[in-house]
């Protein structure tokens, strides 16, 4: 029962390209949405379950991407080795940062993570010798998985969807584990959790590292899929978009975060037709959702649907 939603998601992800073969929206937008789902589900562990905020998550995404880009183009690392290096460096960075940074609360934590994100971004722009500067790095080789080259949008779609499902599955299991319960206690009351004998600093560090790993993994895939990285993909507005995905979908729900990621990706893609009005509509929609559905789209809509359903049942 716990995994019903997961199977439904897997079914949709698998059926879409079969129902609409060769459709741009499925493959290209699907890849973007899938990557965002991985990022949002990871960040949701931190924001939704542990109650911590991060306005600098794009930095970990970027570290994964740049690790893959730099190591494969400059040092001819095989893609999977570069990916592992990206995971290790992002994980270590998160681990080192976790204790001092997660001591902070609320807006101070928001500021510190935001500052961290900006520092990493400045390095991407300025350390031209390593990162290629503002124009970034091109010529990132194809991802080859055990002799199978991921060289078309269709193949990428399947790789990203498989990773996305893995990420969702991991998140679901993590939430129901001992760590997950400890995290929820931290969110309720950190002091209270400590009184119950939970090592809150340890629990927060663990979840910070895990969400950084999710982001770095997505970053590596992103670098190979685009064949190109530049600092623009990892700036403050991306970090903010990630938080919006988590909150928009509904905090403390893995499916909510996934839903928020998909919704925001489609929104960006859909609003381009409004050109100069895009910003106005985007801002108004964000405000409206948060004011009228403070628990997020996913929770709000599914409650609405449930209420509608009972209403229909009663009439009959």
């Amino acid at each position: 029962m716990r995994l019903t939603g997961f199977y439904a998601l897997a079914l949709v992800a698998g059926l879409l390209p079969v129902l609409f073969p060769g459709n741009y929206f499925i493959t290209v937008v699907g890849i973007a949405a899938g990557l965002n789902v991985i990022l949002a589900v990871g960040l949701n562990l931190l924001i939704g379950y542990a109650g911590q905020i991060s306005l600098g998550h794009a930095a970990f995404f970027g570290m994964g991407a740049y690790a893959s880009a730099i190591l494969t183009t400059r040092y001819a690392f095989p893609p999977l080795l570069a990916l592992s290096a990206g995971l290790i460096s992002a994980g270590l960075m998160a681990w080192g940062l976790a204790r001092p940074i997660l001591r902070l609360h609320g807006h101070y934590l928001a500021m510190a993570t935001l500052g961290f994100g900006i520092i990493i971004h400045v390095i991407m722009v300025q350390a031209t010798g390593w990162t290629g500067g503002p124009d970034g790095l091109t010529g990132i080789p194809l991802l080859v998985l055990f002799g199978w080259a991921v060289d078309s949008d269709q193949r990428w779609y399947f790789v990203i969807m498989a990773t996305m499902l893995l990420a969702v599955w991991l998140a679901l299991n993590l939430v129901d584990s001992r760590i997950g319960r400890a995290l929820r206690a931290v969110r309720g009351s950190e002091f209270g959790a400590r009184m119950m004998g939970i090592d809150t600093a340890r629990a927060k560090t663990q979840v910070f590292v895990v969400s950084a790993l999710f982001a770095a993994f997505a970053g590596s895939l992103f670098a190979h899929q685009q064949g190109f990285v530049s600092p623009d993909s990892f700036n403050l507005s991306i970090s903010i978009d990630l938080v919006i995905m988590v909150v928009l979908g509904g905090m403390a729900s893995t499916f909510g975060a996934a839903f928020g990621a998909i919704a925001l990706t489609l929104l960006h893609e859909g609003l381009v037709v409004f050109e100069d009005y895009e910003m106005l509509i985007h801002g108004a929609l964000l405000m409206a959702v948060m004011i009228f559905l403070p628990q997020g789209l996913f929770v709000g809509l599914s409650q609405g649907a449930r209420r509608g359903w009972t209403l229909v049942c009663r009439r009959q």
Partner: peptide, 17 residues
């Protein structure tokens, strides 16, 4: 479960494009 609404939205967008 309760995921019908968004599936329909996605499908509609895909169909129209």
């Amino acid at each position: 479960m309760n995921k019908q609404p968004w599936k329909i939205i996605v499908a509609a967008i895909l169909l129209s494009t």
